[in-house]
């Protein structure tokens, strides 16, 4: 694969639920090492698009290529197998398990003893510490249950889980929605670090300030369509908001066309 080729190439993606068109004719390239923000009002289609990427929905129309190969994901596990990890809004951690156990949940390292898979606790702990250090996530003890962690620390655990499956694309759904200001800064730093590590990051956010702080490229959805694509140097917060609300002058023509 050429370095300039995008990791994900989506062309003409459409999705209907009964008679309702949730997504129509969406083209998108997602590149490694880049943070791509998806913006849009509630019901604009960004979440539906991400669910197609993550394997939670299957597109009705269009072609999805991952690393040059055309794919249709039947399940989130399928998507994970292609290197796509999703960090859900509710984070999906098991509060009763430790940081290490959560990072490796469902993908535990084992060694066979008399034919039975036995957990390799020390090795998993060592790798968990390495991942946490690489992200500079300040989690003092990987042996503590995640129940006691702050929102930002929980994000870090979820990101470590994605890194642990060698994800090449990490999708983050509203990662800062429930966080305090200081915690939000930490999570945004984590997002940048993921991209610097060579991951593609797709970020869904309602917070324009977060998006302006961390995203390289922005795509705006409205009524199931992609209506704008821009980069950070080329835009500003007010313009993004006007795209989202439909007030931007360039949209008037579009709205009449559909």
């Amino acid at each position: 694969m050429d370095k300039a080729d995008p990791f994900i190439r989506a062309r003409g993606i459409g999705k209907h639920f009964g008679g309702v068109t949730a997504l129509a004719d969406v083209d998108m390239d997602i590149r490694e090492g880049e943070v791509l923000a998806l913006l849009g009002d509630n019901g604009a289609g960004k979440s539906t698009f991400v669910k197609v990427l993550a394997g939670a929905h299957q597109q009705n129309e269009g072609v999805l290529e991952v690393a040059g190969r055309s794919v249709v994901f039947a399940s989130p596990q399928d998507a994970a197998g292609s290197g796509i990890a999703t960090i859900f809004q509710e984070l999906a951690l098991s509060d009763n398990l430790t940081v290490t156990e959560n990072i490796f949940l469902g993908r535990e390292l084992t060694t066979k003893v008399a034919g039975f898979p036995i957990l390799r606790r020390a090795e998993m702990r060592r790798r968990a510490i390495a991942l946490l250090q690489e992200l500079e996530a300040h989690i003092p003890d990987p042996d503590r249950p995640v129940a006691g962690l702050s929102g930002g620390q929980r994000q870090a655990v979820a990101i470590c889980r994605a890194l642990n499956i060698n994800a090449r694309l990490v999708i983050m759904d509203e990662p800062t929605a429930a966080l305090a200001v200081a915690e939000t800064r930490k999570v945004l730093t984590l997002v940048r670090r993921l991209a610097e590590r060579g991951c593609a990051v797709v970020l869904i956010s309602h917070n324009i300030a977060d998006v302006m702080a961390v995203a390289d490229r922005m795509i705006v959805f409205r009524r199931g369509r992609k209506i704008a694509e821009t980069t950070r140097p080329d835009t500003h917060a007010e313009e993004l908001v006007s795209f989202i609300t439909g007030a931007h002058p360039s949209l008037r023509v579009l709205e009449q066309a559909h």
Binding site: P76, Q77, A80, F88, E90, L91, A92, L93, S94, D95, N96, L97, E101, L105, G106, R107, E108, L119, R161
Partner: peptide, 19 residues
């Protein structure tokens, strides 16, 4: 054993990681 404890605590998260 980890999976049994995980699904007992948070069924959704257990399903999402493929248990």
């Amino acid at each position: 054993g980890r999976w049994i404890l995980a699904m007992g605590n948070n069924e959704r998260s257990a399903r999402l990681v493929g248990i």
